[in-house]
Design a protein around this nucleic acid. Structure first.
Lengths: 198, 198
DNA sequence: TCAAAGGCGTAATTTGTGTTACGGTTGCTT
DNA sequence: AAGCAACCGTAACACAAATTACGCCTTTGA
């Protein structure tokens, strides 16, 4: 099989996996179900991904690469650090609270080994935080913010921006946020953040 | 069976359920496993709780009653509102991030019907928030805080106190917090909260 | 064009679970 | 003490899923 064909097939398989994961949760999503939906065979899935958890780990990895790519695009647009933060925040919120991310977090919650959780965390928060820190360091250098520890400052920003929305999404108590919600919440988070650190 | 014996038996069954839930997650916890561990029979579990979800809903309800009871005890101790908040917060944090609460949130994340999530939310956040609002109203009346909407103010406090710790606990990336962590985090949350609303 | 690799559709194996049922025992009430 | 309800330990039933295996077909590369 040619590489580009394999990539296409994997994308189809992974889309099928997301559909079932979002609909039925991790326990309710079977390899057989994914194979059927993607018109692939069980044997191929096991050959390509190792086992069920391997397939879902691949979903995490791919999702995180997209998040990172988008954030890096925003960062390379340049401009004033606080403005960058304000543009970045709604997009980050949409991604973190989007259906796919939430479905993956649910899978991690259901995985008793903690491996999916580790994958999500390394690929998610632990990737986002250093990028955020970069923005905040710039703001500090420009005299816009005052703080001692960049990691703590970035954590505070995530508290104000994200708070407990993720867990409420994960347990099914909130719908996916719309664009307007993300913009409003972001603006408020940036304002409060600056109030605390100016 | 006498009432007090039934209560005792139920407590034993529920402890067994927690042990397995914390160890194996929701999907990995079977009614047979709980029955075996609690030396009860399947038939009794189904008679008393209806079905698997019914048993876990009972766990949620009981856990929430304990949270509420503890918070009401703190509230009835009286005293200055901000001080009350500072005393309440570490206890609330310990409860929200404790092993049992996290295990129940994992169960809710794994439940595709959303019923456990609804039960947890009603019994948890949606119970805590009005109690918090009472404290904040007092602080406002005493001239300690300024805000327009109590629900929003209480939500801000939870953002600063809890942030995204729950989801990070649920996906297995954080251990249960110790007393010192809860005190430190609470003090910081109260200070920042007051800085934002004074 | 041809041979080999591997992907598909299907089935098999093994294991486990939700739920119900049953005979014997225990606890409770009169 | 006797009788009845219900609890325990065990088994049965029906179903599902993870994973492996197999024959046939399609794709790839030389």
């Amino acid at each position: 099989m040619r590489d580009e064909n394999k990539v296409l097939r994997q994308t189809q398989i992974e889309c099928a996996a997301y559909e079932l994961l979002e609909l039925k949760g991790y326990a309710g999503t079977s390899m057989q179900g994914i194979a059927r939906k993607a018109r692939a065979s069980n044997e191929t899935l096991y050959n390509w991904y190792g086992d069920k958890r391997g397939l879902f780990t691949a979903l995490v990895t791919r999702n995180a690469a997209e998040v990172r790519s988008l954030l890096e695009t925003e960062l390379s647009a340049g401009g004033d650090a606080i403005t960058t933060l304000g543009l970045l925040a709604p997009k980050l919120l949409e991604l973190l609270l989007g259906n796919r991310a939430i479905a993956l977090n649910r899978a991690a919650a259901a995985d008793p080994t903690g491996e999916l959780g580790a994958a999500i965390s390394q690929a998610g928060r632990e990737t986002v935080l250093p990028l955020l820190e970069q923005v905040l360091e710039t703001a500090r250098r420009d005299g816009q913010l005052k703080f001692d520890r960049p990691t703590e400052a970035a954590g505070l920003f995530l508290d104000l921006l994200v708070g407990d929305f993720q867990i409420r999404r994960v347990i099914g108590r909130l719908p996916a946020p719309d664009r307007e919600f993300c913009e409003t919440r972001s603006a408020l988070a940036v304002a409060r953040f600056c109030q605390l650190l100016s």
